[in-house]
Simulated scan of single mutants.
Amino acid sequence: MSAAPMGFYLWLLLLRTPHGPRRSTFQFSPLMPKITSGEVSYITGAAAGIGKAVTTMLVNQGGRVVIADVNGDAASKFASELNEKAGSVVAIAVKSDTTNWEEQLAGFQLAISTFKRIDYVFANAGIAEHPWLPPFDPEAATSRPMVKPDLATAEINLIGQMYTAALAFQTFERQEIGPSGFRGKLILTASVFGYFPSRAMPLYASSKAGIINFMRSVAGYYADKNITVNAISPNLVDTTIAPDVLFIPFRKYKLLSDIQLVLDQFEKLLGDSTLNGQALSISQEHVWVHPPETHMLEENLPACDLISVEIFKLFGDKTP
């Protein structure tokens, strides 16, 4: 499996966007990429929060969208609003629990039967941390049984996104190169907690870290197949992912990330953008490409590369 050359990561300090100077780690044209009118996007978790904002942005650029959400009523209402405003069918809704393979498969099948292809897949659905174990309390522990951990956060944020990714890759594989020059593009919603640990959110942090390394790994595999894979990693954004009370101190200390700045990073991956294997990150006014791990890379690379070659042979994959 070939990795992107290290020169691909251009560590420039400033990026000017429509919102003014932003700290960044790569150079980007002041002209943001756009989708080609009529291109189709499949977005999970699209009835609220970041997913809803991305969906609105894509429709405003002339795109057609599949609004996939576990809240089927909210998805249908949102699709109706978009269609009414456009005066034509630009959106369809599917009820989809991302942890349910059959529901996700049905959603993709409906998208293909309706729009004939999917140009972009946004694996966005996710939830906040659920307590996976009871709070640490040695005195109470002796009086309660061992508790099975609640792994819902990891199941939705990691396994659910991998189901979405699996359907995206198999869909892209079955269709020709589209108007923007790609078979398709997969964009995963991760988090800065994919890089930084959190005492209170071990499952959220581990699932987002999994998404980041999954993204980097599959981006290398699909790099020569007219498919790009990237991740958007914001810090806390004011959405409905958590109870509003959680956001109060963050508003007070101005520690929330601007949703428009998050959308700007999604937009950089659209159209004819060739960015691949990147973790575009946002925290308050800061924007950067988070670098891959390089500590002891040179010493480990021969074994890491060889394991890919040997596993490809074992799996019957013809990738060199």
Score class of each variant (00 low, 15 high):
V237P: 03
S76H: 13
E298K: 09
D258Q: 05
F108H: 03
L13A: 15
I43H: 02
N230M: 13
N226C: 09
L306H: 09
E102T: 12
L82F: 02
L306F: 10
P33S: 12
F136T: 14
K318V: 11
G7F: 13
I187S: 01
A128V: 14
L58C: 07
S233A: 14
I35Y: 08
T228S: 13
N124G: 01
I177V: 15
K254N: 10
E176I: 14
T239Y: 02
V218L: 10
L270R: 03
L188K: 05
A165M: 05
S191T: 05
G126Y: 02
I187G: 00
L255S: 03
Q109V: 07
A152T: 14
E267Y: 04
L270E: 05
D150T: 07
I232C: 00
Q260R: 15
D258S: 11
P302F: 04
F182W: 15
A154W: 05
P135M: 12
D305P: 00
G49T: 01
K34M: 12
M296H: 06
G316K: 02
A152Q: 15
T99H: 06
R216K: 11
I187H: 00
M6Q: 14
E310N: 08
L255I: 03
Q260P: 01
V89F: 01
L314G: 09
A75C: 10
I248T: 10
S143Q: 15
D224L: 14
L186N: 10
S206K: 04
D150R: 13
K52C: 00
